[in-house]
Design a binder for these strands. Structure first.
Length: 112
DNA sequence: ACAGTGACCTACT
DNA sequence: GAGTAGGCCACTG
């Protein structure tokens, strides 16, 4: 079922450290698809069914907005999870997003 | 095999 | 600076 593409997204998402956030475009770029940012987000839509816990709540859009919170079981589940990580959410947007931004292409550039 | 959808991003007006 | 439109890749029906 899950192709390599999905696992790739899950792996990168799971590598996001606690208290940090990443973006779909960054993950997509790290995987290599680059322009498949949409597909990355769509792939995360099935992340909740994955066995290992995928911190999808740590993945937000380019604006740091919790666009995917609607896909969570709870309306504010994503916000609660992020707050649990020590992050601050305002208006469904991550505060200090650029400061907490975690780019796999940079952090994992040694891994490749 | 064709068409439609989707947690986006970039570019132009 | 803000708003609108199009494009991109992968999956399901």
């Amino acid at each position: 079922m899950s192709n390599n593409f999905f696992e790739r997204v899950y792996e990168v998402t799971r590598l996001i450290p606690k208290g940090r956030v990443s973006t779909y475009g960054a993950i997509a770029r790290y995987i290599g698809t680059g322009r498949s940012a949409r597909t990355v987000g769509w792939a995360l839509s099935s992340c909740l069914g994955q066995q290992p816990w995928v911190p999808a709540h740590r993945v937000v859009n380019r604006n740091g907005q919790l666009t995917g919170k609607i896909h969570f079981p709870g309306l504010n589940t994503m916000r609660e999870l992020l707050e649990s990580e020590g992050l601050k959410i305002k208006n469904d947007t991550v505060v200090n997003f650029e400061n907490l931004f975690w780019d796999p292409s940079i952090e994992l550039m040694n891994e490749e």
